[in-house]
Amino acid sequence: MRKTVFMAAIIVLAGLFCGLFEEIHPFGIPASTAMDDYFIVHAPEDRSSHNVVTSMVFDYRGFDTIGEASVLFTALSSIAALFRNKDARGEGDGGRRG
């Protein structure tokens, strides 16, 4: 019974994906270019950066970048918590028991 339900769900999901792929517009031909054109034309002037990608990453989408920096800092904190010397942080018992 579970196998039948699982197979039916897979078939339904595959059908949905096929339907979605049919709806996707062709690659390289965006549906609307108004926003792209605005950024390409105005970003160097508005943000004083010749590199439009940098003005996107650090200015228009600065929140996203600060999130990325936070992810890196979180990864560092996790690795420090996991791998730091246990004797140095006072958790080790020096091999003593009892």
């Binding site: 420090a80 246990k86 140095a88 020096g94 091999g95």
Partner: peptide
């Protein structure tokens, strides 16, 4: 800073696992 620190900490942990130093007897 973050990547260098990660490299150093993970490198130190190899030494800790190999010798058992700094693992608090674990």
């Amino acid at each position: 800073g973050a990547l260098s620190m990660i490299i150093l900490l993970m490198y130190k942990s190899i030494h800790m696992v190999e010798t058992g130093e700094g693992m608090g007897g674990e």
